[in-house]
Simulated scan of single mutants.
Amino acid sequence: MNLVFFGTPPFARDILMELHKQYDILATITQPDKPFGRKKILKMSAVKEYAISVNIECFQPIKSYEIKDILHNIETKHKTKIDAVVVVAYGKILNKEVVENYFCINLHGSLLPYYRGASPVQNSIIDDYQHFGLSVIRMDNGLDSGEILESYALHKDIVYKQTINQVFTTLVPYGKDILCKVLEDFTLNRLCPTPQNHELATYCSKLEKKDAYLDLEDSKACYLRYLALNNIGTWIRYNEETLKINTLVGYDNRSEHKQKGEILEIQKDKILIACKKGELWAESFTPPNKSKMNAISFLQSCKLKVGDILE
Results as ranks from 00 to 15, higher is better:
50 Y>G: 02
94 L>Q: 09
172 V>A: 01
102 Y>T: 05
79 K>Y: 02
136 V>G: 06
114 Y>M: 08
170 T>F: 05
63 K>S: 10
140 D>W: 02
131 H>D: 15
89 A>W: 09
122 Q>G: 09
155 H>V: 09
47 V>H: 07
92 K>D: 07
93 I>N: 03
175 G>F: 04
86 V>G: 03
159 V>E: 03
183 L>T: 13
176 K>R: 13
51 A>R: 08
169 T>G: 08
86 V>L: 00
161 K>Q: 13
71 L>G: 09
115 Y>R: 10
60 Q>L: 11
139 M>F: 03
148 I>V: 14
46 A>I: 10
91 G>F: 09
140 D>I: 00
64 S>E: 15
95 N>H: 10
123 N>K: 12
66 E>H: 04
180 C>V: 15
48 K>W: 09
144 D>P: 11
176 K>Y: 14
64 S>A: 14
98 V>Q: 00
108 H>Y: 08
118 A>D: 05
44 M>P: 11
78 H>V: 01
91 G>E: 13
94 L>F: 04
177 D>I: 09
178 I>H: 04
165 N>D: 14
44 M>K: 15
140 D>L: 02
173 P>N: 08
56 I>R: 09
78 H>M: 01
181 K>R: 15
157 D>H: 12
104 C>F: 02
141 N>G: 13
176 K>I: 06
45 S>I: 02
173 P>R: 06
83 D>C: 09
144 D>A: 05
123 N>H: 09
132 F>M: 14
109 G>V: 07
131 H>R: 14
163 T>L: 08
83 D>Q: 13
122 Q>S: 09
110 S>C: 01
84 A>Y: 06
104 C>L: 08
131 H>C: 10
68 K>V: 05
67 I>S: 00
137 I>N: 01
50 Y>W: 12
102 Y>I: 07
90 Y>G: 01
72 H>Q: 12
179 L>K: 10
128 D>I: 10
181 K>F: 05
86 V>W: 00
121 V>C: 04
173 P>Q: 10
138 R>Y: 10
